[in-house]
Amino acid sequence: MALLELKSVSRHFGGVRAVDGLDLVIEPGQIFGLIGPNGSGKSTTVNLITGLFPLTSGSIVFQNEDLEKLPTHLRLQTGIARTFQNIRLFGQLTAWQNLWVAQNSPADWAKRGFFSRWLGGQSGVREEISQLLEFSGLAHRQDELAANLAFGEQRRLELARALATRPKLILLDEPAAGMNTEEIGQLRERILKIRAQGTTVLLVEHVMELVMGVTDRIAVLNFGQKIAEGTPVEVQADAAVRKAYLGGGE
């Protein structure tokens, strides 16, 4: 049974068909790649899944539940988390606090009870925050304001913040943008570990070495439409994809 299903999803901005009749099926446990030239509708797809704006038409089903009526914060509580293409941290909070405010999953709520959910509640969650900071290589930076972190650290913190919501599905919007080869290697390891812990991954990415190496399945967008889908090997061999990337330009 599919974890997430997009059924002929469209989103138009005025005359621009940012996403145009997109069908997508993501199975639990997959690392699913979404690629395509700039402006092909990848970020819009992520925004639609998290509910930042309504669909023009179509529907999105997550774990058999139609997401249409759910506002963004409730979609998170069903288990969908994301990172942003342009990092959006809480700059004046510390790295530690950035993870603290993200612990909104039903499991964390149940653990804390009403008052400590809102007010105190450091004790039950400290350990998980420490683990996540450790996982992201940020343990030594926990008291630093997010705004003062280096670019690569900010990207890692944003990923950790998404994980702090205990997602079943995590949407990563170009997580490797601006990273060097070594950092991309570390990111690759992290993505594999995230999947190993049972979280499904939708990876939007430009960096081909990462997408091709880590994904189980890839869909290719061009002008809001899916032009190909398959395993990395199949997609690389696809004529339409080659044309979109070589002819369509970046």
């Binding site: 606090q97 950035n98 405010v101 993200a102 809102w118 919501t165």
Partner: peptide, 28 residues
């Protein structure tokens, strides 16, 4: 005291970036 609680951090998170706050499950 509120300021130092999780609630205080959530208030500041909303003040900084509503979109990011929603996206981590905060009810604006």
């Amino acid at each position: 005291w509120l300021d130092r609680s999780r609630y205080g951090a959530v208030l500041r998170a909303v003040g900084e970036d509503e979109l990011a706050a929603q996206s981590v499950g905060i009810n604006l």
